[in-house]
Design a protein around this nucleic acid. Structure first.
Lengths: 207, 207
DNA sequence: GTCTATATGCTGATAGAC
DNA sequence: GTCTATCAGCATATAGAC
C-alpha cells in the first residue's frame, strides 16, 4: 500500500513543479519563446523528465491553460438573484479583486491567450462564457425592470467589472512602477476593493 | 530632383508595409513566435529585403513599439484643469474609446509588452508614464478639494478609465464572441462611449 | 535595391542506458 | 522513473550575384 502511493506522490509533485515553472515561462516569453529547457531548469529537473511527464510542449501549455480556467471558474464568485443588486455587486467585485491580487499569473495567461486570438480555447469562450454572461445579464435586467438599479446595459457592466479588476493583475508591473512600489501590500487590496465597490455601486445608482 | 525623391518613397512604403505586417505577426505569435519569414510573406516581399531595411528582428519590434507609443501619445486626449471635471472626463473617455476601437492593435502590442514585464520599454513606464499620471492626478485632486467632484482616489480613477476603455481593444475577440458578432459596428462605439461616460460620471458623483 | 543560397545556432523530441 | 546523447528541423542572419 505504501509502495503503491509513493510513486503517485512523485508524479504529482513533479507535475506541479513543471506547471508552476511553465506558467512563469509562458508569461514571460510567450508560447513559442518559452523553451522546454527553461521550464525544466526552473522546475529543477532535466529536460527529458519534463517530456516524460507531458510528452510535448503543447501538452504542457494545455495543462497550464486548464489549471487557469479551473481557477477562474472557482474564483469568479456567483451573482445571485436573491442577493439583490447591491450585495451581489459587492460580492462579485470583491471576489474578482481578490483573485486578481492573489493569482495574477492566471489572469495574465488568460489575457495573453485572448489577446492573441484565443487560438487554444475556442470552445470555452464560444459556449461556456457566452452562456455565463447571458445568464448573469438576465439577473441584472430583472433588477432593472423592478427599479432596483439604474437602467444600464448589463453586459457592458460585466465587461467594466472584469476589466477594472483584472487590470490590477495583468498590468501589475505598470501599476507598481507608477506607484513607486515593488510589491502590492495588504492595504492595496482593501483600498482597491473599497474604491471599485463604491465607484461601481454609484455608477449603478445604488449609492 | 525627381530621381532623388523616388528612392525615399520606396523605402517609406516598404518600411510601412513591414511594420504593419510585423504588428500583426507579433500580436498573433508573440515576439519569439513571429518569424521574419512570416513578416516578409505578409508584407509581400522576400525575407532578405525585410532584413535589408531593419537589420534584425529586434529592430523591427522596437520600431513597432515606437510607432505604438507615438499613437498612444497622440490619441490619449488631455485632461485640462480649465475644462472642469465633467467635460474633462467626457473628453478623456471618448478619446480612449475611439482609440481602442480604431486602433486595437496598438493597444494589444502595448498590453502584451506590459503583461510580459515591459522588458522592452522600461524607461517609458518608469519616467514618462509616472509623471503623466501624477500630473493628471493633481488636477483631479484640485477639483476634489474645490468640492467639484466626489472625493475618490484620482490614480485609481485613471486606472479604471484606462482598463475599462482598453478592454474593448485588447479583448475584442472575447467581446465579439460573447455578443455573437464578427466585427464592431459604428453603433458599438457610440453605445460604449455613452455607457462608459455616464457610468464613470455617476461614479465620480457628477450626474 | 532585390533576391538566392547558405552558414550557424538553437529547439523539440526521441532512443536507450541505468 | 531518471538522465545522457543525439538527431532532425527550423530560424536568424549574412554573403554575394544581379
Amino acid at each position: 500500500m505504501i509502495k503503491k502511493t509513493k510513486p503517485k506522490k512523485i508524479r504529482e509533485v513533479s507535475v506541479d513543479k513543471i506547471l508552476s515553472a511553465a506558467q512563469d515561462e509562458f508569461i514571460l516569453q510567450g508560447y513559442k519563446g518559452a523553451t522546454v529547457q527553461a521550464i525544466a531548469d526552473s522546475a529543477g529537473m532535466p529536460k527529458a523528465n519534463v517530456l516524460y511527464y507531458f510528452k510535448n510542449k503543447e501538452n504542457i501549455y494545455h495543462a497550464v491553460l486548464e489549471q487557469t480556467l479551473n481557477m477562474w471558474d472557482e474564483g469568479i464568485g456567483d451573482i445571485l438573484l436573491e442577493d439583490g443588486p447591491k450585495l451581489a455587486i459587492e460580492k462579485f467585485v470583491k471576489a474578482k479583486v481578490i483573485m486578481s491580487f492573489t493569482n495574477p499569473k492566471a489572469s495574465k495567461i488568460y489575457a495573453m491567450e485572448i489577446i492573441q486570438g484565443a487560438q487554444h480555447l475556442q470552445e470555452f469562450t464560444r459556449s461556456y462564457l457566452h452562456q455565463w454572461v447571458q445568464s448573469k445579464a438576465e439577473i441584472f435586467q430583472c433588477w432593472i425592470d423592478k427599479g432596483q438599479m439604474q437602467p444600464i446595459d448589463p453586459v457592458s457592466l460585466i465587461f467594466l467589472i472584469w476589466s477594472s479588476t483584472q487590470h490590477y493583475a495583468d498590468f501589475d508591473n505598470q501599476i507598481l512602477t507608477i506607484k513607486n512600489q515593488t510589491d502590492y501590500t495588504e492595504n492595496d487590496i482593501t483600498q482597491v476593493t473599497d474604491f471599485l465597490t463604491n465607484f461601481i455601486l454609484r455608477g449603478c445608482g445604488l449609492k
